[in-house]
């Protein structure tokens, strides 16, 4: 514990990422899926900033900011879609939206 390692951050980010993936794949509720996507994006942000600090460059932070902006847009549109689905089907259960079956 006498030195800060890069891997600390990367592994934390990996945990967040995997949890997010699990949420996206296993959750029925569309809003929970959106939250899980936020987890994934945050994992990415941690990576970006950590690598930026590692390389002594500001670019990581800049890109993290961009990702945050894109995530905000994504949540807005995503929630709008969820609302639309809810309005049409009275449910946000993704198992009900299984229309990909040929």
């Amino acid at each position: 514990m006498d030195d800060v390692m890069l891997n600390q951050f990367l592994l934390l980010s990996a945990i967040l990422f995997s949890t997010g993936v699990y949420g996206v794949l296993a959750k029925k509720n569309a809003i929970l899926v959106l939250m899980s996507i936020e987890l994934i994006l945050n994992a990415v942000n941690i990576n970006l900033v950590a690598f930026g600090a590692h390389n002594g460059t500001i670019v990581g932070s800049v890109f993290a900011l961009f990702v945050i902006a894109v995530a905000a847009a994504e949540v807005g549109v995503g929630l709008a879609i969820v609302l639309l689905i809810y309005r049409n089907r009275r449910s946000v259960d993704l198992d009900d939206v299984a229309q990909m079956k040929g």
Binding site: V21, V24, L25, A26, L94, D95, V97, A98, Q99, M100, K101, G102
Partner: peptide, 14 residues
């Protein structure tokens, strides 16, 4: 596997 459920497809993809 042909369930039409996107999440299953995505899981297999992952």
């Amino acid at each position: 596997m042909q369930t039409g459920k996107v999440q299953q497809y995505a899981a297999i993809l992952f």
